[in-house]
């Protein structure tokens, strides 16, 4: 069955509840599986850890966005007021920085928010129009009340029969082969 490995994207297993899913994920991780993903209808706190994920780099992206936005708006306000279009108002300094605080704040929030929003989709490799897991009809329930674990065929330990048996041993109610669409 070696050539079949090329036609399959992996094995998708369904579990009854988040607790069973977490147990299965950590069980497979102990076996040495790395290329896994889980699908749940709401965020499950312990799941990323069970899958061996490190924490999300989103905060750093947001920080970078905020710093970029704040410095850009402050720089713009300063450059416009002091260089591009200097207006002497009653002899007050051209670099009247306290009045640039509101624009700087708004710029920080705007760029940081865009960084957060775009960061989620960049890190999740989205948007994309299709994914092999959608070939499984039952996968629709992942957004209502079902809990899935995917072991990808690219994983070094992946073996069509053995992995399926292991998933069933860990309590999967059903296992599907995901076609490599």
């Amino acid at each position: 069955m070696t050539h079949a490995t090329h036609d399959t994207a992996g094995l998708l297993a369904e579990f009854a509840n988040p607790e069973a899913l977490i147990l299965a994920a950590s069980g497979l991780r102990d076996d040495g599986y790395v290329e896994m993903d889980a699908f749940t209808p709401f965020p499950v706190e312990e799941l990323p850890e069970a899958l061996g994920r490190t924490s999300s780099p989103i905060p750093w992206i947001v920080l970078a966005g905020g710093l970029l936005g704040g410095s850009s708006l402050f720089g713009l306000a300063l450059w416009v007021s002091a260089v591009a279009y200097p207006l002497n108002v009653g002899g007050r300094p051209l670099n009247s920085w306290p009045s640039f605080v509101p624009p700087t704040f708004e710029g920080t929030v705007l760029f940081a928010s865009f960084a957060a929003f775009l960061g989620v989709f960049y890190l999740s490799r989205l948007p994309r129009l299709h994914h092999p897991v959608f070939e499984i009809e039952r996968f629709r329930r992942a957004s209502t009340d079902s809990f899935f674990l995917l072991v990808e065929s690219t994983d070094g330990k992946f073996d069509r029969a053995q992995t399926e048996q292991r998933l069933r041993d860990l309590g999967a109610s059903e296992v599907w082969e995901v076609p490599d669409a």
């Binding site: 993903d37 889980a38 699908f39 749940t40 209808p41 709401f42 965020p43 499950v44 799941l47 990323p48 899958l51 994920r53 924490s55 999300s56 989103i58 905060p59 947001v62 905020g66 929030v109 940081a112 928010s113 957060a116 929003f117 960061g119 989620v120 989709f121 890190l123 999740s124 989205l126 948007p127 994309r128 129009l129 299709h130 994914h131 897991v133 959608f134 992942a142 957004s143």
Partner: peptide, 23 residues
């Protein structure tokens, strides 16, 4: 946008949602 409720989607989503709330 192709959201598939993946654990990593949720992980980034939750972080970003919290930070957007804080902003």
């Amino acid at each position: 946008l192709g959201w598939r409720n993946s654990a990593s989607h949720w992980q980034h989503y939750q972080r970003a949602y919290l930070l957007l709330a804080a902003l």
